[in-house]
Design a protein around this nucleic acid. Structure first.
Lengths: 144, 144
DNA sequence: CATTGATGCTTGAGGCCATCAAGCAACTGG
DNA sequence: CCAGTTGCTTGATGGCCTCAAGCATCAATG
């Protein structure tokens, strides 16, 4: 049993990795069609409301100084805006402009490969998949 | 039903994305502990046998000229070797050295977050998850 | 053969991503 | 008011990535 379990686990791991990169490339390709790099699109996707630079660095798991450049480029295209926080003038809150929101929404809609992949499942199967994946989350996320 | 189905689909999509990036960061962190960038590790992971540069470019979905640099850096560290193909002297087959194989094997083993996440499922659940994910593959992969 | 074309790889220029160290501005506690 | 902390930016350095151009080799044709 240990043996067969190990095999299943290794294969499952590989499958998850394969699908993960396929979805990522689907996302990157959709973003590229709108002149965005994947990281720019990912940042834009996080902006449901105003988020300080520091918060973006944590969401993207990278250095804060890196965020400066990414936001610079998005701001230069008018997809994003910096607003200095009135309560603490050190922090700059980043908000998506109307065009930024429209753009990221289109990117999401244009992830055809991902959408068609999910369409291959019935609603019930999607629910099953969801609960299984939900159980994976704690193990994957409690890392720095 | 359309409405609830849509909600489930959007959430599922987001969950898949979240887990995908979490796993990728687990991989990147493990690679970094061995002084490898994520792309270098990913390339190394593809080398079950000799693979020509062109083939690596397809596997990594990037330009061939990019592979040159990545292999250069891996070769400089002795993790990989270029062998010119005897049948066609234009092609260089890349093979992992013994150290390269050992290194990537350690990286795989050290993906603690991923392993512990999978340990949260019973073997039966893993099997279910596997078949569900397997059904997603065709939709995700038949894109250029 | 010799030429023409295609294919595999590399090089160089240019741009983005990523980190680190250093710095400035603004808040905070005493 | 002053020392320390925090949020952001800048500059240096290096890796990733693409495109255009180039060299070497192979394959097909006359």
């Amino acid at each position: 049993m240990t043996a067969s379990s190990t095999v299943t686990k290794a294969r499952l791991l590989e499958l998850v990795a394969t699908l993960g990169t396929a979805q990522w490339q689907d996302f990157a390709a959709a973003a590229a069609r709108h002149g965005l790099t994947s990281v720019q699109a990912k940042l834009l996707a996080q902006l449901k409301g105003p988020v300080p630079m520091r918060g973006l660095a944590e969401l993207l798991v990278c250095d804060a100084s890196n965020v400066t450049g990414i936001v610079d480029r998005l701001e230069a295209r008018g997809l994003v805006r910096r607003e200095t926080d009135p309560a603490d003038r050190r922090v700059k809150n980043v908000v998506a402009t109307e065009e930024g929101r429209r753009t990221i929404e289109r990117v999401r809609a244009e992830m055809q490969a991902t959408h068609s992949a999910l369409d291959a499942l019935t609603e019930e199967e999607r629910a099953t998949l969801y609960t299984l994946l939900e159980r994976l989350r704690p193990g994957l996320e409690h890392r720095a």
